[in-house]
């Protein structure tokens, strides 16, 4: 009885007692959810167009952020550094397509998956070699991101929204809208979607797989850079950021590997629910630290009922 009370009643009483704190928790969850969604978006984009499960997406975030900070440290103005980083990410996309993906076209999925883990290790090694392993400060002010905080007083309480978080959310929304416009309204975007729907048919009408793959990896790089700036502003830039890459995986499971909507909805859901669970159930009952596995277990439970995720394509198997 005591336990049931603690599980089913006490957390909700806590929530009702301090609604401003609940809102704060939800906001924090929302912001991390946006980041998970952004990383998952990079995964989905690459998976849709090439059936490659790109494990390196998380490390590309770190790599992009490190490159940006590295350029700035060399005395280059912030916005020029951003442009240079984009050039580097484009070079990375071309390099990956040319050196890794092209020789492996047509191999089983697991082989390509392993190859992206190889890329991950390579990027970790080279990133630490070039930029060093220590934690760096993201150049938040230099990029013109405000750093103050908005203060609200709902329910006679206190709600703090940091301006850089607000910027992050707005930036992410803009990025997603831009991406959807690109995918639906431009020639290149249609080519990307066509290749994802049916690669044979797409090739036969003259769509270049190589160009599309480079493009997709470059877009994933751009998303990585945005994610890197946003997350770096919160937590500094180092390879510890790698762990958020793992957080994007349950988001993918929950939302479905092919669905952009799924990545966004799944990301926000997981971000908020894991924060709620950690604060109201994890810390009082389980000793905390539940954020490391909660998302996975939640996704696993959802998958038991919908094996293709909430928004994934229905899996049809034929013999």
């Amino acid at each position: 009885m005591e336990l049931l009370y603690k599980i089913f009643i006490a957390p909700f009483q806590d929530m009702a007692a301090a609604p401003d704190f609940l809102m704060q928790v939800l906001w924090e969850g929302l912001v991390s959810g946006v980041l998970y969604a952004l990383i998952a978006l990079g995964f989905v984009l690459i998976f849709r167009s090439s059936r490659i499960f790109n494990f390196a997406q998380g490390i590309m975030v770190v790599f992009a952020a490190l490159t940006l900070v590295g350029f700035h440290a060399m005395g280059i103005p912030a916005y020029v550094s951003v442009a240079l980083t984009l050039v580097v990410m484009f070079g990375l996309a071309v390099g990956i397509e040319r050196v890794v993906l092209r020789p492996l076209v047509g191999q089983p999925d697991i082989i390509l998956f392993m190859a992206t883990i190889g890329i991950t290790l390579f990027l970790i090694g080279s990133g630490e070699l070039i930029f060093g392993g220590e934690n760096k400060r993201m150049i938040t002010e230099e990029l013109g991101i405000p750093t103050g905080a908005f203060e609200f007083n709902p329910f006679d309480g206190l709600l703090l929204l940091e301006q850089k978080d607000v910027t992050a959310v707005i930036g992410a929304v803009a990025l997603v809208i831009g991406l959807l416009l690109f995918l639906n309204k431009t020639r290149m975007g249609r080519a990307i979607r066509a290749l994802g729907d049916d690669s044979q048919a797409a090739l036969s009408v003259g769509i270049s797989q190589r160009t599309v793959w480079v493009m997709v990896w470059f877009i994933a790089g751009v998303i990585a850079l945005v994610t890197g700036i946003v997350w770096g502003a919160r937590a500094g830039v180092s390879f510890a950021l790698e762990v958020i890459a793992y957080k994007a995986l349950p988001v993918l499971m929950l939302g479905g590997l092919e669905s952009i909507t799924g990545a966004i909805v799944g990301g926000l859901m997981i971000g908020m629910m894991e924060k709620l669970f950690e604060i109201y159930w994890g810390q009082p009952l389980l000793g905390g630290g539940t954020e490391s596995w909660f998302a996975f277990v939640l996704a696993l439970l959802v998958l038991l009922f919908r094996p293709q995720g909430l928004f994934g394509e229905k899996i049809i198997e034929r013999v």
Partner: peptide, 20 residues
């Protein structure tokens, strides 16, 4: 240490390409 990680990563890709 860093070179190690890099080379292991490169070797994985290399071996996958020559013999998946």
């Amino acid at each position: 240490e860093h070179l190690n990680i890099m080379i292991v990563g490169a070797l994985i890709v290399f071996f996958l390409i020559i013999e998946p």
